[in-house]
């Protein structure tokens, strides 16, 4: 074991130091704990919305950024998660916390279903349009399956609660959401740093060579979609709890484009990037509120400018500031 330790720290001088540096990340959620003390309900709502979009971005980024497939079914996983959470709470009377895991599992199942074209060898634009169709197909289900989903008008979701404690204020929701987000970040990070994450990246780089290394590529493509769907589905359950009502319009193509903007602006294939993208894309419209009539324009310009000057996303900017922000899985 001493031999391993020596080998690990040998070639890259910064390796062991940056590992200590990375533990600084633990401070972030701790520093965020007092946030609700300083924010009014509306601002807290926006912060909560950011937290919703962190897992949504993370899940999307695994498939597009790490696995490298042009699959645009993310909004479907988001919707499935939100509807699962909503239906279980409304129809079965389950408390919100008990719907989170089922929402993730339904998201994973939707992810597995959405991976079928990719498993059949469909790639690039063909895969893009087929996965887009998958999202629209689910929207059709939300609209038509009225007894369960409430149709076009959607459904009101009961007030969320955790272990019998109702989440009365936005501040309460914030803590529940923060817990889930930190959990998803940690789990996904573990996965991406392991042979699983390396297999995703290998498939992105060269599928044929990945298979030649003994990697059952199909199984890993399925896994990336399923895990991505799981994380996004949990984001969906958070969305249902935050907004308190779930409608088909929330999961349309515009929504998908926003989610795509999150990972593009944040940085493809970067976990840090998914977080940054969620922060910027979700909060930017709030800053533009003062320029009435120009909000969409400013928002569009922001996205264009970031991608023009930082094609590798905000994650690359952060990486330039300090080596501890270098995301090992952001390469393009």
């Amino acid at each position: 074991m001493t031999d391993i330790a020596k080998k690990e720290s040998l070639p890259a001088g910064g390796r062991s130091r940056s590992r200590i540096g990375r533990s600084v990340f633990w401070l972030i959620p701790i520093l965020l704990l007092p946030v609700p003390l300083f924010l009014d309900q509306y601002r807290q709502y926006v912060v909560n919305l950011i937290l919703v979009y962190v897992p949504v971005g993370i899940g999307f980024n695994i498939v597009v950024g790490n696995l490298g497939l042009l699959a645009f079914s993310n909004v479907a996983f988001f919707g499935i998660g939100a509807y699962t959470s909503g239906v279980l709470a409304l129809k079965l009377g389950l408390p919100w916390w008990a719907t989170v895991l089922p929402a993730g599992i339904m998201g994973a199942l939707a992810g597995s279903a959405a991976s079928v074209p990719a498993l059949r060898g469909v790639r690039l634009f063909y895969l893009a349009i087929m996965t887009l169709a998958f999202g629209e197909l689910l929207r059709w289900v939300y609209i038509r399956w009225v007894p369960v989903t409430g149709g076009s008008f959607g459904m009101a979701v009961p007030k969320p609660s955790v272990f019998g404690l109702p989440l009365l204020t936005e501040g309460h929701k914030f803590y529940a959401f923060l817990f889930l987000v930190v959990l998803m970040v940690i789990l996904t990070n573990r996965l991406l740093r392991s042979r699983f994450g390396r297999a995703f990246m290998a498939i992105k780089s060269n599928e044929q060579a990945a298979a030649a290394m003994g990697i059952p590529t199909d199984r890993y493509i399925l896994l990336a979609f399923a895990w991505g769907g799981f994380v996004v589905g949990i984001g969906g359950s958070m969305y249902a709890a935050l907004v308190g009502h779930v409608t088909p319009i929330a999961f349309d193509l515009t929504e998908l484009i926003l989610e795509f903007a999150i990972i593009m602006v944040g940085g493809l294939g970067s976990l840090v990037g998914s977080v940054l993208g969620a922060i910027v894309i979700t909060s930017a419209p709030e800053f533009f509120r003062n320029w009435l009539g120009f909000q969409e324009l400013l928002f569009g310009v922001l996205i264009v400018v970031v991608i023009l000057f930082l094609p590798r996303g905000l994650a690359s900017l952060l990486a330039r500031l300090h080596p501890i922000f270098v995301d090992r899985y952001y390469r393009d």
Binding site: R198, A199, M201, A209, A210, M213
Partner: peptide, 21 residues
């Protein structure tokens, strides 16, 4: 591979790790 089958997005070390998958 003929035209270099290394995974360009991965480091040399990670390439070998994929070999060990």
């Amino acid at each position: 591979f003929q035209n270099g089958g290394l995974f360009a997005h991965l480091t040399a070390l990670e390439n070998v790790l994929v070999g060990l998958h």
